[in-house]
């Protein structure tokens, strides 16, 4: 099984930056109605750049690890850079092959972020 690489399992078992930010600049809770997985993201900006990201969530290894990996990479990015993030970018970050049936899981964090920016 290629999908469950060490970094995925590591982030699943030890997710980074879990928590909340009160009064965050961007915030959104995104559930996946198909499976009940959920990711809620909080982004704090400072001087036009991401100063802090926290998130909460529950679900499968793919959705939770990809959220953890994606959000960890956001600090220091500008809002414009955040808006440019796409599925391809997330898959590159994950360094694993995600089979098509699980693409929605892998992009749950991304969708949460995109909706937070709206």
């Amino acid at each position: 099984m290629n999908m469950y690489q060490e970094n995925i399992l590591d982030h699943y078992k030890h997710p980074r930056n879990k928590g909340k930010i009160e009064g965050a600049d961007f915030q959104h809770r995104e559930p996946n109605p198909l499976c009940g997985d959920v990711v809620e993201v909080y982004v704090q900006m400072d001087g036009g750049k991401v100063a802090d990201v926290k998130w909460e969530g529950a679900g499968c290894a793919i959705s939770q690890a990809s959220a953890s990996i994606l959000f960890e990479s956001l600090v220091g990015k500008t809002e414009t850079e955040l808006r440019k993030l796409n599925t391809e970018g997330v898959l590159t970050l994950l360094q694993t092959s995600v089979n098509p049936a699980r693409l929605k899981c892998a992009t749950l964090g991304l969708v949460a972020l995109q909706k937070a920016l709206k």
């Binding site: 099984m1 469950y4 679900g59 499968c60 290894a61 793919i62 049936a101």
Partner: peptide, 8 residues
């Protein structure tokens, strides 16, 4: 998680 199980 059950979805991870189903993939395996």
């Amino acid at each position: 998680h059950p979805h991870d199980m189903a993939s395996i």
